[in-house]
Design a protein around this nucleic acid. Structure first.
Lengths: 140, 140
DNA sequence: ATCATTGCAAACACTTTGCATACGC
DNA sequence: GCGTATGCAAAGTGTTTGCAATGAT
């Protein structure tokens, strides 16, 4: 499959600098939902002058433009996903890996309790949240 | 409604010190899903010697014992909920308030897209995650 | 007297910011 | 040459840790 990453950036109103392309490419090739730091570690081998600041800033721009989704599961790290279609995530408490999960497999009305399984992964805890503008703030 | 908070702590294997009782009481009376800092700010008026460290440590103990749920939505704050029954949360991007939402109202199979509403709150983005032990780690 | 709880200050880790430099059109 | 992208170092922030002091039984 060939997609012109440069074009995607341009379509999203992001000027396609070399660094930005590399960061986006890294996210597209590496579907492990990496943190800014992981992306930095991957690319630094190819671009030794790369700064962590650039990675942070670039990911922020990508997320603002809707090019990537930022995923908050732990309070001390943000992970990034090039797949912006709505889906769930499973994080392993042992190895820290982050897997995609298909939400149609979840029956959220029932208590999504501990010790059930999904895709073979053992569930310990779950969380659903929505962000937006609350009733009160819409009026103001 | 009268519940003996002290007994609840003891049942959860937490020795019921004065500070711990106050912190738990604060969470029970104040269903706004406060952060450690908010709890600290509330209680410091009654216990001027209270330390933030104690609040952090106590909440950590509560969460470990399953007495309260810790909620991670933003990467820079953990919020606490005395209601450990599984439910969703809505966070207002404008005022920062955190509301409970009934998950049966969410139709997660469909794209939980922007500009829908739930309980009158306008949805901008959503997230579902599960934590546990992944397939690979179960084998090891 | 002993053991658990508390609290201060310092350490931590991820992220953001200010500002100077370098790059590209 | 001008405007944007980059990068360094420092600041910021919520949280954790080390360790001494305090408190309870």
């Amino acid at each position: 499959m060939f997609t012109n990453l440069k074009e995607i950036l341009v379509k999203n109103e992001i000027s396609p600098s070399y660094h930005r392309l590399k960061i986006y490419e890294c996210l597209m090739n590496n579907r492990t939902h990496p943190t800014a730091d992981m992306i930095y570690a991957t690319i630094i081998a190819h671009i030794p002058t790369l700064s962590k600041t650039t990675v942070y800033n670039t990911l922020k721009i990508f997320a603002e433009k809707g090019l990537v989704a930022s995923i908050t599961i732990e309070d001390n790290e943000v992970r990034y996903d090039a797949d912006v279609y709505f889906h769930g995530h499973f994080k392993c408490l042992t190895c820290g890996s982050l897997y995609d999960i298909d939400l149609s497999q979840l029956q959220l009305e029932k208590k999504l309790g501990a010790n059930r399984k999904i895709n073979g992964h053992l569930i310990k805890e779950s969380q659903v949240y929505v962000k937006g503008i609350c009733k009160k703030c819409q009026k103001n």
